[in-house]
Each structure stands twice: as C-alpha cells, then as structure tokens.
Amino acid sequence: MAELQARPMTGAERQRPLSPHLQIYRLTMTMAMSIIHRITGGALYYGMLLLAWWLIAAAAGPNAYATFEAFIGSVIGRLILFGFTWALIHHALGGIRHLIWDTIHGLEPAERELLALATLVGSIVLTLLLWGVCYLMIGGPR
C-alpha cells in the first residue's frame, strides 16, 4: 500500500460520515428502479426455463407441444408470460439506461430521475401495447 501513503494524511483523524442503514435512505426513483432491475434480471434468469420448455416441446412433437400450450394458455401461464414480457422489456430499458450512464450522460439529478421514470412508464406502455397487438393478431383472447 505504499502508493496510498503518498496521499496527505490530514483527513485520517477526522470523523468520516457513516453510511446510514438501508431503512434510513429516502426511497428515490433511481433506487427503486435499481432494485427492480436486479429483480427482473433474476426473474428472467429463471424465465429462460420457460423458453427452454417451449423449444424442447416444439422439438419433441405434437403431444409435448400440446402440454406446453395448455400450460401457457391457462390463467397462471398467461400471468407468467405477461410477467416475463414486462420483466424483459423493463430490464432491457433499464439496461439501456445503464449503458447511457456508462457514457457519463444523464447523471444530473433531474435527468437520472427522468430516465428512471421513463424506464417504468415505458416498460408498462410497451408491454400493454405488445399484448394488445398480439391479441388483435390472433383474434382476441382464446
């Protein structure tokens, strides 16, 4: 640690501010979206099982595919698929936001709150739009 000693020692004895515990922070939009980005990442991680099931069922034959279709067409199945759609879109938008931040843009207080809000609103709007278009394409809920 020789190189660290080169720094002036004046601050060493001063009382440094302690980081407050999680419950003491005011919940900001950016903080909430950061947590949701991690949760959606984790959800998508397990959601890839669903994709694998779909592909394996298609490869296995009509019977296996019918089983998958019955599951994904059920209320639970649709809820999971809807959640997966939203998680994917939200996580992708959140990812784009991270990539913008990596270029050191959009980090001012107002900008970062706006970007976080845009992720949330954008993901909800895009998910509903996508499901609406899909229902129209296949001719209503079946």
Binding site: A58, L88, A92, L130, M137, I138
Partner: peptide, 20 residues
Amino acid sequence: GIPLTIAFIVIVASLLGRNH
C-alpha cells in the same frame, strides 16, 4: 442484447396461436 431481444420478441409474437 438490445437488437436480439427485439428480434426475439418479434419471432415469438409471430408464432403465437400457430399450430405445432
């Protein structure tokens, strides 16, 4: 992942409701 996810969503959406 950005273009690939868009392409993935388009592919899945276009397969909805089709038979095996």
